[in-house]
């Protein structure tokens, strides 16, 4: 699967437009949804997995969750 320059530009434009329209800076990913269920201890990389419904998507190191982005 390849990414074209056109797709890069398209995504960059989309992100810029979003930020202009919402008057907000995207910030960094650690500002995204806080995972409340696993207290940031689930990583999806660990050999255990936690009880939370977001266990598949939780990135424990940042306490953030990718789930909402794929809702």
């Amino acid at each position: 699967m390849n990414i074209s320059e056109k797709e890069i530009i398209k995504l960059r434009d989309m992100l810029n437009t979003y930020e202009e329209e919402h008057g907000t800076s995207a910030g960094d990913v650690t500002e995204s949804v806080n995972c409340t269920s696993c207290a940031g201890y689930c990583s999806g990389a660990c050999n255990n997995f936690c009880t939370s419904s977001c266990s598949s998507y939780c990135d424990g190191s940042s306490g953030s969750c990718w789930q909402s982005a794929h809702r």
Binding site: E7, L11, M14, L15, H22, A26, S32, W66, S68
Partner: peptide, 20 residues
């Protein structure tokens, strides 16, 4: 990158963070 380019009308703040 691919999946986010399909979300022109449904981006949320977290998408922007991940996309960046």
């Amino acid at each position: 990158i691919k999946v986010l380019t399909t979300r022109r009308d449904s981006l949320i703040k977290e998408d922007v963070s991940y996309g960046r």
